[in-house]
Amino acid sequence: MDVLTVTLNPALDRVIEIDDFQVGNIHRIFDPTKVHISPGGKGINVSIYLDQLGIKSVALGVVGGLTGRMFHMKLKRDHDGITTSFLYVEDETRENMSVVDKKGNTITEFNLPGPEVDEKHLNLFMKKYVALLSRAKICVIGGTVPTGVPLDIYNVMIEEAKRLNVTTIVNVHGEPLAHAIKAKPTIVKPDIRGSKIVMGKSLKTLEDYVESAKEMLKMGIKMVIYSFEVKNDLVVTPEWTYLFKMKTKLKSENLLGVGDAYIAGLIYGMLNGKDFLESARYGMAAAIADELTKEKDIGGVEGMNNGLKFVGLERIST
């Protein structure tokens, strides 16, 4: 097992396509292809994309209730390359439901609450984490922290991974991100979709992003990846700073999970002996491949390699 992905608060994603969606009306759906159910959550998504790239991973997470069982079953059924290790709690796993109305061009979302994780279950989870970590080369930590779990949990997890010489990739936001950064993970890809404030600083211009990334490098982090103006990625290491751009304007089918596809592509490069620059190219190629499809699908290695031809690089400083 090379890769361990950690998702403390996974979700079952349901997307229902309804033309002319109207509040207060009954919408009967007779076409099963209009309903899409998929396990989600940052670490889980990375595992799904890695499976498409032929890389096996262990997905560790907290699930609960009937939704949790369905989530687990669906993941096992659809993804043979993913080994699961879930801690079951009493409360229901989160469910995110989206109603997509293509005719009206709207998306209506319902995000249900996730489970509460008490100290006893958190301790059990950490025990599983440490046991699995000892066999991993790369550990991906992503997503929100469930109710009841201290916000510095990712800091503790990264410290543990460092103790075992495991490369850590972190994709979180808000206060948990601030705590995670303090533990100096190997790679940070801050999730700034909700708020563009990182380490107390507001990010507006490209210079703000570069400065923020360099501040993290000074702390000992090896690589920082920022999504910049949605379609571009700023990638900073102690040796170089590049802005990755799309060479051609392409029609996006979806933006859901592209950040997670990026991490899967990055890992693909790293496990194949590529340096950070080349691995970042694979990352962006995987994200582009995902963007060109409707659901979480990058079309395997072929799809990702196809995405490579759209990756443009601009070196913006040394």
Partner: peptide, 25 residues
């Protein structure tokens, strides 16, 4: 095989085992 490494640790309690079995069928 079922690629699931859910297991019980040697020092977990009987009560935890029962809960784990019920929650996961």
């Amino acid at each position: 095989m079922e690629k699931d490494v859910t297991a019980i640790f040697i020092d977990e309690t009987v009560e935890e085992f029962i809960h784990a079995c019920v929650r996961q069928s």
